[in-house]
Design a protein around this nucleic acid. Structure first.
Lengths: 348, 348
DNA sequence: GCGCGCCCCTTCAACGTTGTAGAGTGCGTA
DNA sequence: TACGCACTCTACAACGTTGAAGGGGCGCGC
């Protein structure tokens, strides 16, 4: 059916291995031979069979990216960044969605597909300290993205949850806000994004000598627009006064803003709001959304690089690394910056 | 390194082929043997090597989804739908982004990765009639998503561009709008989404006895929020009056709405607006966005099914099929519906 | 009591590629 | 002249899996 190395070899009058050597840029090949082989390849339209190559070499050139949900802009943008980084390094990316389901998150690192891919980039929402054993079992090279899983035996790259939340809160304090809502807490959580961001929020308050008021800490279990809208509606109905919001991600912030607008509450005059993630949508909301940009490209590139190193040095034992990506405060209208429209479309 | 069929076979005291038969649910196996093999598999943690299986069987179980850009919500949501459909059918999905680049769109259907995947789902933006030859060359089973490529020799599933745009325009006419903007045209285009949607727009005007006014047909090359905002700003600056907008997708509509809000123009009172795609964001915008839902799940499932059939019947020649997905008008605030907040979060 | 078909399992080879080992040539140096 | 080395290429085997072919054993129908 498809043409193979042998077909090319026959046409070029060389051995199959020589064709393989040409394809793989093995150095010691006479120019004329190479020429002849390349021509035969072009003539027959030869393309290497990646399954065979994968079987023989133990490498498929495919890595898995495991994320909760592509419909969540943050993960879509992360996936995009990862795919570009992978592409530059000659890798293909197979995306798996967990739907944030704990069972599925656990199942995916065992499934047969780990036999297809060379490594895993794993962005878990639900797994935590208790699952260290599970992660230790995984023999496929793996790099964790995002949450801090305490003492996990893996390389790990994360945004600076605590420092970022602290910077966000400080920003609101700087512009004169005093009753600042922490929006999106997960009560009791220690090592997840929500817990760490709450710590940063608290640190900023303390540093400024502001009280930590439980009434301003709002739990929102799922960090989507809808949930942000529902939670904000409830909060407004309660009547607890506030003048600033640190939303634990942009989607929550956008949901909350929707409700604030409905109620005729002016932003940033009456309520200033800042998010987390720097998703594209925040540039176009009304008001445009101030946010903490988590260093997405850096996260993606570092993750792929670390994974590649794990793959190349498979078998070696070397200690897990923890990388903290640089974050950045992006000031927009929702905290009083008078932004010009963005200079260019972000997509293409 | 990893355990193989032979390891399992040795432990269970059977041949490797018998293990293979158990793994693949071959029917004629004694219950006790099956039991023993399954236990050995569990004990050793055996997982099939998918490269070997792919090499031997000619099937990798992976399909490619080729799309312009994941950061575009429409495609992220489409990818999500495709991945769910694929998952239900035991397939993995490898996503490729073209960035809307014509060269890259063309290159991807030739690259070596087509040797890794069993089939392609191909959502091209830029390829058109002229590229039929290119598509005809592709031997990998392929299903086209989205645009109509005239006379392409492939299965094809598309939303109803013309009928959908007509329904959208009729909706605006029904609620009393008379100067309706076609927002996002691609002048001269015949067979792409923009061209087909413009036809639907025109049909609706004609059916209602309204004039087709060139001044109300606005070209916007790229269908992103930013481009919608820029184009709307230009239109308002020109001063051409209008009371309705059929935006050719939701992102354009959202960009335009941003500018309308800035200028203090009330929606839907002064300008009613409708989009295309039913992306999640439109539910939460202010006002929430009326839209044409293109039947995303149906598109995804039908596409995967058609592709699987092409894969199974590879070698057979049978005529290409064209499927038109059902669309739906979703009324929201931007055209005067008083929507309750959505009943549940769409994500998980 | 013989043949036939079904059940259960095995052996063998092959999928297309690349690592290993090595052969042959030519060139520079001792 | 001999030797080593670099270059160029080849033959062979192996990666882990499954299709094809086949072989015993058993039950059933005649």
């Amino acid at each position: 059916m498809a043409t193979t190395l042998h077909d090319v070899a026959r046409l070029a009058g060389v051995s199959a291995k020589t064709v393989s050597n040409v394809v793989n840029d093995y150095p010691h090949i006479k120019a004329s031979t190479k020429e002849r082989v390349l021509q035969a390849i072009a003539e027959l339209g030869y393309r290497p069979n990646l399954s065979a190559r994968g079987l023989r070499s133990g490498r498929s050139g495919v890595i898995s990216l495991i994320i909760p949900d592509l419909r969540n802009s943050y993960f879509a943008e992360l996936a995009d960044a990862v795919m570009h980084a992978a592409d530059q390094r000659g890798l293909y990316v197979l995306i798996e969605q967990t739907g944030g389901d704990r069972e599925r998150e656990a199942a995916l690192v065992r499934g047969p597909r780990t036999q297809l891919v060379d490594g895993l980039l794993y962005s878990a929402l639900e797994l935590g300290e208790d699952d260290v054993d599970l992660l230790a079992e995984v023999t496929t090279p793996m790099v964790l993205l995002g949450e801090r899983i305490f003492n996990a035996p893996n390389d790990h790259i994360t945004m600076q949850n605590t420092a970022g939340a602290r910077a966000a809160t400080e920003h609101l304090i700087e512009i004169g806000r005093r009753r600042i809502v922490a929006f999106g807490a997960h009560p009791g959580e220690q090592v997840g994004s929500a817990g760490l961001r709450l710590v940063g929020y608290r640190e900023a308050l303390e540093a400024a000598g502001l009280p930590y008021d439980e009434a301003l800490v709002r739990a929102v279990g799922v960090w989507h627009r809808y949930d942000g809208a529902v939670a904000m509606r409830a909060m407004l109905d309660e009547g607890e006064p506030f003048d600033g919001i640190v939303a634990f991600n942009d989607a929550l912030a956008l949901g909350a803003m929707r409700v604030l607008s409905e109620r005729g509450i002016r932003m940033p005059e009456e309520v200033a709001i800042i998010g987390f993630d720097d998703i594209d949508e925040g540039r176009y909301s009304l008001p445009s959304l101030t946010t903490i940009a988590p260093g997405r490209d850096q996260i993606a590139e570092t993750a792929v690089d670390m994974l590649l190193e794990r793959i190349d040095r498979r078998g070696e034992e070397f200690p897990p690394r923890l990388v903290l990506a640089d974050f950045q405060l992006v000031r927009r209208e929702s905290t009083g910056a008078s932004t010009a429209p963005p200079a260019a479309s972000v997509s293409d």
